[in-house]
Simulated assay, not measured.
Amino acid sequence: MSKITRYDMLKEQHLTGSQDGSVSLWEWGHQNAVATPRSPGTFAKVTRVRFSQHGNKFGVADSDGHLSLFQVACRDGTARPFFNYQCHSKVTADFVFLGACSLVATAGHSSEGRNVALWDTLLPQSKSLVQAFTCHDQGASSVILAPQHQLLISGGKKGDINIFDVRQRQQRHRFQAHESPIKCLALDPHEEFFVSGAGDGDIKVWGLTVHSLLYSFPGEHPRSSFFKNIGQGVTQLHVDSAGRLFSCGADGSMKVRQLPERDCVVHTYY
């Protein structure tokens, strides 16, 4: 079995995407996958799999820059994407569904520098690009949506964070968050803050509306490789409704922290 590179889960279903390009849809109680929308050895390495907010569709991004969207009701033999497009010329690293509408945001690396983009999946492919942003030198690596504020947050390979207004379809703010590539982002369910994890193992917590640094956890998941951008730092982040921060790293550890009540003082924890 090929190495699983990405994973997403709903209550009764979960998705796996692998290094060999394959994607499988699983259901609890079934020993085998109920569908294999992408077979092994045919497509590029999977960089991200995600379910939509209501769980009726899912998407797959890969290292060739493609994004493919499927209906969850798909089964083997009928698993055809309803949207399939090379959104970035080099790699599509991440994507997010923009609520229940037909819009999707992608983050990746394009030769022309348009590394964050909005797409309308109901339009013909030649017209599906709604907005493209020239940002993130050397590409964007992660993107999340704050639905209540309609803000799109992306992290770049140079450690910078960009914040976009989805309604106005314009860039609102940019700041330097880390000294190494940002590997992942996570949003507080109450939308008071968001979290960034970097390749040097640092984790930082930022205010959502004022973008100030609230907490810093240096070296939380230290580097496990001497080679740049390979197997380094923070690999996954999650914040639950109780304010607990879950993090995984290339050091092989998973950690849970209870974030204190928010105040105006920056806290650095070693």
Score class of each variant (00 low, 15 high):
residue 48 R to E: 14
residue 254 M to C: 14
residue 105 A to L: 01
residue 4 I to R: 08
residue 189 P to Y: 07
residue 202 D to R: 10
residue 25 L to P: 02
residue 201 G to L: 13
residue 219 G to H: 12
residue 235 T to S: 15
residue 143 V to T: 02
residue 240 D to C: 05
residue 160 D to F: 04
residue 260 P to K: 13
residue 111 S to C: 10
residue 143 V to E: 02
residue 119 W to Y: 10
residue 181 P to K: 09
residue 240 D to A: 07
residue 39 S to P: 00
residue 237 L to E: 07
residue 158 K to C: 06
residue 193 F to Y: 15
residue 20 D to V: 12
residue 126 S to E: 13
residue 266 V to N: 11
residue 241 S to D: 13
residue 233 G to P: 04
residue 7 Y to V: 02
residue 80 R to G: 04
residue 31 Q to H: 07
residue 228 K to M: 13
residue 8 D to L: 06
residue 58 F to I: 14
residue 80 R to P: 00
residue 175 F to K: 01
residue 28 W to Q: 12
residue 5 T to S: 11
residue 245 L to K: 08
residue 267 H to G: 14
residue 44 A to Q: 07
residue 207 G to R: 09
residue 216 S to D: 06
residue 119 W to C: 07
residue 150 Q to P: 00
residue 27 E to F: 06
residue 243 G to I: 02
residue 261 E to P: 03
residue 123 L to C: 06
residue 149 H to E: 10
residue 33 A to E: 10
residue 76 D to V: 12
residue 242 A to L: 12
residue 209 T to L: 11
residue 110 S to G: 12
residue 34 V to F: 09
residue 143 V to M: 00
residue 76 D to R: 09
residue 223 R to P: 00
residue 10 L to E: 15
residue 6 R to E: 11
residue 102 S to R: 09
residue 37 P to K: 06
residue 114 R to W: 03
residue 188 D to Y: 02
residue 3 K to S: 08
residue 184 C to I: 01
residue 202 D to N: 15
residue 22 S to V: 15
residue 29 G to H: 13
residue 267 H to S: 13
residue 205 V to S: 08
residue 226 F to V: 00
residue 242 A to K: 10
residue 28 W to R: 10
residue 87 C to N: 01
residue 115 N to E: 06
residue 253 S to K: 11
residue 141 S to R: 12
residue 32 N to F: 08
residue 184 C to Q: 05
residue 148 Q to G: 03
residue 197 G to V: 04
residue 108 G to V: 01
residue 153 I to C: 01
residue 182 I to N: 04
residue 222 P to Q: 12
residue 235 T to N: 15
residue 65 G to Q: 04
residue 196 S to W: 07
residue 112 E to D: 14
residue 261 E to H: 11
residue 227 F to I: 03
residue 163 I to W: 00
residue 237 L to I: 04
residue 88 H to F: 03
residue 185 L to V: 05
residue 266 V to L: 15
residue 210 V to R: 14
residue 158 K to S: 10
residue 131 Q to R: 14
